[in-house]
Design a protein around this nucleic acid. Structure first.
Length: 289
DNA sequence: CACTTGACCTGTCCGC
DNA sequence: TGCGGACAGGTCAAGT
């Protein structure tokens, strides 16, 4: 699922549902989804109370009273869905995802004193790790992660300076590089480049200050809009309550190849950049202008 | 170094 | 209907 807006949406939901609840038991069916020792799990997960839910980059952090944290990366198809005790009763709408949980994509189940938290992940790329809270910032994943694009302290000047660390790379490749900027993935890279009228293959060195400023504005705009819409559901993504996000109906180019550009009416095309499907308007986003 | 490709997995869709 | 291949929101490791 999950780029910054999707993970942020899950975080907002879990932050309302989880703090104060106690973890009673954990079960898992795929070691790579939950690569923790039985000893750590017994000592620092079972019986711990959930204190706080946070997000950094595309990662969720659930802080526990045991001074350990659950650190969760949803990768492509991960879901973190809370089902309250009342939801287990008969008569719940059968079309609702949460009526079906656990299902065959469920990798980890956390039983709480009230309700259950399911970590589902069809493709098994995601993971949930139990780590001492003090050590979380120094794990390999976070050591190399860039700044948060929506942080109040992060502005267009800092954005430009970070992009320019990779002058010869295409701008889309750099947007997707988590060590440059945290949280941007394929959807919001394409959407923000369309907004700023920049071809995804443009080398960073060819971008004017004005263009970089436009890109920063557009990136913040699409990320904020998507959080407001509860993220993008293309296939698997759901929030903490099992509900889909609606940003895809606001998308201008992503997965809209063959449709008219909402700005100029030209037909949106799809190419491949950095190994990823890339959507753009060939008229609005020219390589040389 | 910087950039590309393959690997990690399952599921779906599309063409033959 | 079946089968093979391409592709999918993300990161790593290994190759060039």
């Amino acid at each position: 699922m999950p780029e910054l807006p999707e993970v942020e949406t899950v975080k907002i939901g879990l932050a309302k549902l989880l703090p104060g609840k106690t973890i009673k038991n954990v079960t898992w069916d795929w070691l790579k989804s939950f690569p923790n020792s039985q000893a750590d799990t017994d000592s620092f997960l079972i019986g711990a109370k959930i204190v706080l839910v946070k997000r950094r980059a595309k990662v969720l952090l659930i802080e526990l009273s045991s001074k350990y944290s659950l650190v969760i990366h949803l990768k492509m198809t991960g879901q973190l869905v809370f089902v309250g005790r009342e939801r287990f009763g008969a008569g719940h709408p059968s079309e609702s995802l949460i009526g079906h949980l656990p299902d065959k994509s469920t990798r980890v189940t956390l039983e709480l004193n009230e309700g259950k938290l399911f970590f589902n992940d069809q493709r098994k790329f995601g993971w949930m790790r139990l780590i001492p809270t003090a050590e979380v910032p120094s794990i390999d994943f976070f050591k190399k992660i860039g700044p948060e694009p929506l942080a109040a302290s992060f502005g267009a000047k800092a954005f430009a300076a970070r992009l320019k660390k990779r002058p010869n790379s295409s701008v889309k490749t750099v947007l997707l590089d988590q060590s440059i900027i945290a949280g941007v993935g394929n959807i919001y890279a394409d959407e923000s480049l369309w907004g700023a009228k920049i071809h995804p293959l443009t080398p960073v060195r060819d971008l004017s200050t004005q263009k970089i400023n436009n890109l920063f504005e557009e990136l913040q705009y699409v990320l904020r809009l998507s959080i407001e819409k509860g993220g993008s559901t293309d296939r698997n993504y759901v929030n903490a309550e099992g509900k889909k996000g609606s940003y895809m109906s606001f998308a201008r180019v992503f997965r809209r190849e063959g449709q008219p550009c909402p700005r100029c009416g030209s037909t949106i095309i799809k190419i491949r950049v950095a190994g990823r499907g890339t959507h753009l308007c060939p008229k609005c986003q020219r390589l040389k202008s």
